[in-house]
Nucleic acid binder design. Structure first.
Lengths: 344, 344
DNA sequence: CTGTTAGCGCCTTCAG
DNA sequence: CTGAAGGCGCTAACAG
C-alpha cells in the first residue's frame, strides 16, 4: 500500500496537518514530535504524492520542452540544448517534461496542453519562427517562458546568437581567401534565424563589392539530404560557386557529400562552411569551418533566466545576444591564409 | 483565470459531473447537451488540469528516465536512447519526465522520488550495474520498468545487446588481420556489459590461441580523456599492443588521440576499435571500426515493452537479446583484408 | 503547539 | 439523461 500523510498520522497518533507541518519544517511543531514523525516517515519510506502537492500548491518544479520527433543523428541541436537545460535544471532541483512532437500543428497543441494543464512551471522555446504562434500563445496566457531566438517582436525574455555577426565573420573569411562566387544554402524561410543569417550573407557580399546572385541561393530543410541536394544543384550550375555556405552544419555536411561525389576535394577545389559547430563538425572529412553557437551553455543560461521569470524576479538582462565565434577548419582551406588558398 | 470544469458548468448551466461526462465521451449524455458543452469548452480553451486528473486516476501517461548530468558531447549514448524512447512515447501519447542526476547516490534518490511520487507510470533504466540497486528498488515496489541491459539476475523485462558476440566478431576481425598483441580498455567494473564484453575478448584470444596478458588490460571511465590516458599507458609498454580495443567508442576516440600524439598512423601502424557505433564513429580520423548497437531502435522497442508492462499485458518476449553488427572502417585497416594489412 | 475545516480539479459511484 | 456526494493526498487558514 502507498504510504501517505494519513498512514504516518495514524501510526504516530497525530493529525495529518501536524505531520505535514512537521515534515515541511514549520517551526510551530514540537521538536520531539517532529523527530518522531520524521523517524516514522523514514521507516515507512514515505514519499509525498507530487500530483496532490502540485494540485494544491500550483507549483510543479518542472520545466517543459517540446522537441521534434527525430533521432539525435538527424538533429543534434535539440539534444545539445536539452543537455544544457537539464543540467542546469538539476542545479535548481527541477525536472524536465518532454513532449516529442511532429513540428507544426501537433506541436502547438502540445504547447497548449503543457501550459494549461498545470504540469509545468515554465517552458523553453527553441528555434523560433517568424510570428511564432507558440510565443503568441505563451504571452497571451502569460505563462513563464524563455526562448532561444527572437522573432519579429522580440519583446520577451530570450537568448539569441548574433547570426548576422557570425555570418559576416564567415563571409569575410571566405573573401579573404579569394572567393568571389559564394553560394548560400538557406534554411526554411519561416525560421527567424534564416533571415538574420541571410542578412549577414548579403552584407558580406556588399562589403566585398560582390553581386547578390539569385542563382546562388537555394533553400533546404536543415537536413543532410536537403543540404546534399541543394549543393548538387549549385555545383551543376554553368558558373558554379567556389564556396558554399550552409545555414547549419547538418546541411553543410550534406554539401561535403555532394562535393565529394562530384570528385571535388573540399578545402582545395571548393570551400564549404556551416553554422552551429555541432560536435560532428570537428570530425567531418575535411573538418568543417563553421560558426560556433555554444548551445549547451545557452541551454543552461536560458534555464537560469526561466527560473527567475518563474520566481517573478526581475531579469537584469531579458534579451541576451551572444556574439558567435568563427571556427576555421580545413573545409575552407584551414587556418593559415597562405597555405589554404583555394583555386578559383 | 483558469478554465476548469466548474467554469464550463456554470457557463452551460449544468453540473460539473455532466460536463465531465460529456467531455469524456460517455454515452449517457444527451447528444445536444454534449455538443453544447464541447462548444463552450472549445470557446473557453479548456484544458484539463492533469495534476488533478493524475491524483484521481493514478495514471499519468508519463514515462520517467534518470539521465547522467553530462553534455551530449561527453556521453552520446543517453541522448540517442532518449531520442528513441521519446519518439515512441509520442506514438502512444506519452510524455517523458527527465531527471538529470549525478550518477551514484543522488541517482538512486531520484529513482525513489520518481516511482513513489505518483508522477510516472513506468521507467526506463539504462546502463545497468551489477547488483543494480535501482532495479532492486523497482522490483521491490513492483513499479513497471524495462531495462536496457541485464544484471546478474536478469529476470525482469529487458533488452540487451549481445556484447559477447559483438566483441568476438571484433576479435576475429583483428586476428584475421594478423594481430597477435591485442589490448583492451575496459569500462568500469560495476557495469554489467563490461564483464560480458571482457568475456568476448577472452574468448577471442582463446580461439586464436593467444595468451591473456594482464598488462594489456586497463580500466577507464568511459570518457574520451580516460580512453586517451589508458591508450598512452598501453603504448608506452616495452612490448606495446598492435591493436587496442575499447569497450565504448568514446574511449576509442581517446585512443585515436593518444596514437596520433605518439606519431602513429592508426589503421597502418596500429589498429583501434570501439563499441557502440555512435554517430561520431563514422567521422573520426580515421573512421572507427566498431560494433553497432542500434540504440535509437532499442529505445523505441524498450518503450513498446514498457507500455505493455504498464497495461499489464503479457510480454511475448520479456528478454530481448540483439546480436550486434561489426562495422569495419579504416581504424583497423579498412574493409578489404588485402589492402589493410597492419604492420606488426 | 496541535487539530479542525476547507478546498485544489477531477472522476465515479449512487440516486433521482 | 442529469445531479449530489465523496474522496484522491496535500496544504493553508483559523481555532483552540
Amino acid at each position: 500500500m502507498k504510504v501517505t500523510l494519513k498512514t504516518i498520522a495514524q501510526e504516530a497518533g497525530l493529525s495529518i496537518t501536524t505531520v505535514s507541518r512537521a515534515l515541511a519544517g514549520y517551526d510551530d511543531v514540537n521538536e520531539a514530535t517532529r523527530q518522531r514523525v520524521i523517524a516514522i516517515a523514514k521507516r515507512l519510506g514515505y514519499q509525498p504524492n507530487l500530483a496532490a502537492r502540485h494540485l494544491r500548491s500550483k507549483q510543479t518544479h518542472t520545466i517543459g520542452m517540446v522537441i521534434p520527433l527525430t533521432s539525435y543523428y538527424s538533429d543534434p541541436f535539440f539534444m545539445e540544448l536539452l543537455s544544457g537545460v537539464g543540467r542546469q535544471a538539476a542545479e535548481y532541483g527541477y525536472d524536465l517534461l518532454l513532449s516529442a512532437q511532429q513540428p507544426g500543428e501537433e506541436e502547438l497543441i502540445a504547447y497548449r496542453r503543457m501550459v494549461a494543464s498545470s504540469r509545468i512551471d515554465g517552458v523553453i522555446v527553441a528555434r523560433v519562427w517568424k510570428d511564432d504562434p507558440r510565443i503568441a500563445l505563451l504571452r497571451e496566457v502569460q505563462h513563464p517562458f524563455v526562448a532561444f531566438g527572437r522573432s519579429n517582436d522580440g519583446n520577451y525574455p530570450h537568448i539569441d546568437v548574433d547570426g548576422l555577426s557570425g555570418m559576416l565573420q564567415l563571409m569575410r573569411h571566405l573573401v579573404e581567401r579569394g572567393h568571389r562566387r559564394i553560394a548560400l544554402i538557406l534554411s526554411p524561410a519561416n525560421l527567424v534565424f534564416t533571415a538574420v543569417r541571410y542578412q549577414g550573407y548579403v552584407q558580406g557580399l556588399a562589403e566585398a563589392g560582390l553581386p547578390l546572385r539569385q542563382d546562388y541561393l537555394v533553400e533546404a530543410d536543415l537536413s543532410q539530404e536537403g543540404g546534399c541536394a541543394a549543393a548538387q544543384h549549385l555545383l551543376a550550375l554553368p558558373d558554379p560557386p567556389t564556396a558554399i555556405v550552409a545555414c547549419n552544419d547538418t546541411m553543410a555536411i550534406g554539401a561535403l557529400e555532394a562535393a565529394r561525389a562530384r570528385g571535388l576535394k573540399v578545402g582545395r577545389d571548393i570551400a564549404v562552411a556551416g553554422f552551429d559547430d555541432i560536435p560532428l563538425a570537428a570530425y567531418t572529412d575535411p573538418p568543417l569551418t563553421t560558426v560556433r553557437q555554444p548551445i549547451y551553455e545557452i541551454g543552461r543560461r536560458a534555464l537560469d533566466m526561466l527560473i527567475r521569470v518563474i520566481r517573478r524576479e526581475p531579469l537584469q538582462e531579458p534579451h541576451v545576444l551572444i556574439t558567435p565565434e568563427l571556427i576555421v577548419r580545413q573545409s575552407t582551406g584551414g587556418a593559415s591564409p597562405a597555405g589554404g588558398q583555394v583555386r578559383v
